[in-house]
């Protein structure tokens, strides 16, 4: 990581406080859901609220990314970047729907699993924005 990386990072719309917040929030929901699953509890209100807030944060992140692209900035790997972006905003709804269908401890396990995947996708999203010379 050199000055080139920090310059690219400064321009990256997916590498700010919002992205960090989404990662932290997602992990918090994952831990909360894991506790629920271990205690044989179905997904509770807090898990669904967490998924909702996470989705809002991810949508704002997407809008910022699209605004940046509209303003002339380009991700390093556009195809992969938009693939990850679309996947990312679909994750909380996926967890929501499946958790609603499964009002048992396994519903909580689903929320946990999806919320563990989301931070990975955020990091991949950041990597596909700032590709420096492949």
């Amino acid at each position: 990581m050199g000055p080139m990386t920090s310059a690219a990072a400064a321009n990256s719309p997916v590498d700010g406080i919002l992205a960090t917040a989404s990662i932290v929030l997602s992990l918090l929901v994952a831990v909360w859901a894991l506790v629920a699953a271990v205690r044989h509890r179905p997904p509770d209100r807090l898990q669904f609220v967490g998924l909702g807030v996470l989705e809002v944060v991810l949508l704002v992140l997407s809008v910022l990314a699209l605004v940046a692209v509209g303003g002339g900035d380009r991700p390093g790997e556009p195809g992969a970047f938009f693939g990850y972006l679309v996947t990312l905003v679909c994750l909380p709804p996926l967890a929501w729907v499946l958790a609603r269908m499964e009002p048992t401890r396994w519903g909580s396990a689903i929320v946990c699993a999806v919320c563990l995947v989301a931070p990975v996708v955020v990091v991949r999203l950041q990597q596909t924005w700032e590709v420096l010379g492949g």
């Binding site: 195809g79 992969a80 693939g83 996947t87 679909c90 996926l94 967890a95 499946l98 269908m101 499964e102 048992t104 396994w106 519903g107 396990a109 689903i110 699993a113 999806v114 995947v117």
Partner: peptide, 25 residues
């Protein structure tokens, strides 16, 4: 398709999405 099976389906779905987009691209 219920209980642990639903979790399994969820993970399969995640991998289906990941592998499909990667392969497609």
């Amino acid at each position: 398709n219920s209980g642990p099976g639903r979790l399994l389906i969820a993970v399969y779905l995640l991998f289906a999405i990941a592998a499909t987009s990667r392969a497609g691209l």
